[in-house]
Amino acid sequence: MTIIDTALHRLPAPSAAIQALRWSMVFIFAMFGIAKFAAYEAEGVARIADHYWLFAWMYPLWGVQGASNAIGILELSAGALIAAGAWSHRAGLIGGIMGVATFLVTLSFAIGADLWQAGYGFPFMGSLAQFLFKDAVLLAACLALSLDAGHRLARTRKGAT
C-alpha cells in the first residue's frame, strides 16, 4: 500500500464536510442576523434594499430599523433551522431551503446593477459585486445542506414504510 492509499483510507467521511458546511452556515447566519439589529447595518442594508422591489414595501411600513430587524429574524431563523438539522432532517431541509432563498434573493440584486469598477470595467469588481459574489458559494453550501437533509429524510421515510 502506497502512502497515498494510506492517506485516502484515513480521510473523514463526506458527512464531516456536511457538518463543516452546517456549522459554518450557522455561524454566518448568526453573525449577519445579529448585525441586522444594529443601526449601522440597518442603514447599510437600506442603501441597497429600500429601492429593490422585494424589500421596498417594508420600509414605509416598518422603517429602516424595522425592515432590518425583519431580515435579521429571517436570517437567525434559517441559521437555527440549519443547526437543528444536525438532529432533525426536516428542520435541516427547511433551514437549507431558507438559506438557498436568502442567497438567491441577495444575488438577484446583481440583475441590472452596475457591478464593475468605474473607469476599469469588467473584470474589475465594484463594491456591490464584491458584496454579492461571495453569496454564490454560500448559496451552494445551503443547496448542499438542503440536498443532504432531503436525502436523509427520504431514507428515513423509506425505512419507516
Rank of each mutant, 00 (worst) to 15 (best):
T6L: 12
H9E: 15
L11P: 01
I18K: 01
Q19D: 12
R22G: 07
W23T: 12
I28H: 04
F29Q: 03
G33D: 08
I34M: 13
A39L: 10
A39M: 06
A39G: 00
Y40D: 15
A46Q: 09
A49R: 03
A49F: 13
D50F: 06
H51T: 15
H51P: 01
W53Y: 05
W53F: 05
Y59L: 09
P60T: 08
P60I: 04
W62L: 15
G63W: 03
V64S: 08
V64G: 05
N69Y: 05
A70P: 02
I73S: 12
I73V: 15
I73N: 10
I82L: 13
A86W: 05
W87M: 14
H89L: 03
G92N: 09
I94E: 08
I97Q: 01
V100P: 00
L104E: 01
L104Y: 02
S108A: 00
F109N: 00
F109K: 03
G112W: 01
W116Q: 07
G119S: 13
Y120F: 14
G121L: 06
F122D: 09
P123C: 06
F124K: 09
M125T: 01
S127N: 13
L128R: 04
Q130P: 00
L132V: 12
F133H: 01
K134E: 08
V137R: 03
L138W: 11
A144F: 10
A144C: 05
L145F: 03
L147Y: 00
D148W: 05
G150V: 15
A154S: 12
T156Y: 07
R157V: 12
G159V: 05
